[in-house]
Every structure is written in structure tokens, then in C-alpha cells.
């Protein structure tokens, strides 16, 4: 057989076989991965919004961006909001849940769903004691940060992760920018009372 023809055939065959097997694997792992993701969101929401038992999903279109927002309910009463927010971090996408009180005035806390920040440095954003700083901060004002020291009480700031200022900064802008956009959205306003 002609050498170049053999090259084409063998390489195409390998590509077809690997493509095919990956398609099969993707087909039956995809639903499981989705279930895992939804479970991670539900667990996060339950921890962040105290008392909430039911979660109602709302999808919002805002100037070309799609957002997913959850209303945390207890006996039909609104206990808080869970915003699924994402944006670019230091290396790749960061995706978080930011939970707020029913009035969307202060944060109940945040949970990191997906991140690929530097291990040991930027990935400290998922650590409990870092995330605890967000509890009670106002979302009516911009949340800022200070380096290497504890922020003044009431300053609406957090302490940045040392050696990972960019990860901190990116995380804050994901929260600040998106909540500002979403807070006044029609669909959120309609759902606020109940």
C-alpha cells in the first residue's frame, strides 16, 4: 500500500475510534456530572440560606448574559436568594453562589462551585475562613479589600489572600458587578415579595 495513503487511513482510524469511544463515555457520564453539579448547588444553597428548604430556579436574560438565580423558600416564605455567578479568575472561570437576604441588601455568604486558581494560593478562595469574611457585607455598596491586615469593622472590605491578590480581586468583581446588574432586574423585583 502507498505510504501516504496508509498514513491517512491509520490516523483517521485512530481519530474515529477515539472520538467514538469518547462520545459513548460522554453520553453516559454527562447526566451523572450534571446531577453532581446540581447536588453541589443545592448543598451550597442549604448551607448559605438558613432555614430554606425549597429552592425555586429562575432564569434571567440580561443584555445577552444568562443568569441562574434561586429563591430559597420556607413554607412559601422567601428566606433568601442564591445567585449563581461566574466570571474569569486568575487562570480560568470562577463560578460561585452568592447568597443574600430577601431584600438583596447584604450577603449571607458565598460558596465556590468551580475554580481553577493556583493550588495553595488562589484556590484558598474556597477555604471556609476566607469565605466567612463575606457574611454580613453590604451589597448596596462596592465590596473592597485590604492586604495583609484585618479590615476595619464596617468598612465593607475583606482581607485579600496573600500572594493571590488577583484571585481576590477577580472574585470581588464577579460579586460586585453581577449583583449590581441583577438587583434591579424586572424579574427579580417581581419575585421579591411573597
Amino acid at each position: 500500500m502507498n505510504e501516504s495513503l496508509r498514513m491517512v487511513i491509520v490516523l483517521s482510524l485512530i481519530a474515529v475510534i477515539s472520538g467514538g469511544s469518547l462520545a459513548v463515555v460522554d453520553n453516559f457520564t454527562k447526566p451523572k456530572i450534571e446531577v453532581n453539579k446540581v447536588r453541589a448547588i443545592k448543598t451550597g444553597l442549604k448551607q448559605l440560606i438558613p432555614g430554606a428548604a425549597d429552592f425555586q430556579k429562575i432564569e434571567i436574560q440580561e443584555k445577552g448574559d444568562k443568569f441562574v438565580v434561586y429563591r430559597g423558600l420556607k413554607d412559601q416564605q422567601l428566606m433568601g436568594w442564591g445567585f449563581i455567578l461566574s466570571g474569569s479568575g486568575f487562570q480560568d472561570k470562577i463560578s460561585i453562589i452568592a447568597a443574600t437576604d430577601p431584600a438583596i441588601s447584604k450577603l449571607l455568604g458565598i460558596e465556590v462551585l468551580e475554580q481553577k486558581e493556583t493550588p495553595g494560593l488562589g484556590d484558598n478562595i474556597k477555604k471556609e475562613d476566607f469565605r466567612a469574611q463575606f457574611k454580613g457585607l453590604s451589597v448596596l455598596k462596592v465590596i473592597g479589600f485590604v492586604k495583609n491586615k484585618k479590615p476595619m469593622p464596617g468598612s465593607n472590605m475583606i482581607q485579600a489572600i496573600s500572594a493571590a491578590t488577583i484571585s481576590t480581586k477577580k472574585l470581588l468583581s464577579i460579586i460586585n458587578d453581577n449583583l449590581k446588574r441583577l438587583r434591579g432586574h424586572q424579574k427579580i423585583k417581581q419575585n421579591r415579595v411573597k
Binding site: M7, V10, L11, I14, A15, S21, L22, N36
Partner: peptide, 24 residues
């Protein structure tokens, strides 16, 4: 002449397989 390309496709397939399995 196409061995490296073939190896990379084979390796990449197994890596993706491992990645999906871990995620699932």
C-alpha cells in the same frame, strides 16, 4: 511519520476518559 500524532490522540482520549470518570 505519523506516530507522534497517533500517540497524542491515544493519550488525549485516555486523559479525557479519566477526567470524565472522575467528574462523574
Amino acid at each position: 511519520s505519523v506516530r507522534i500524532a497517533s500517540y497524542i490522540v491515544i493519550i488525549a482520549s485516555f486523559v479525557t476518559l479519566a477526567d470524565r470518570f472522575l467528574a462523574a
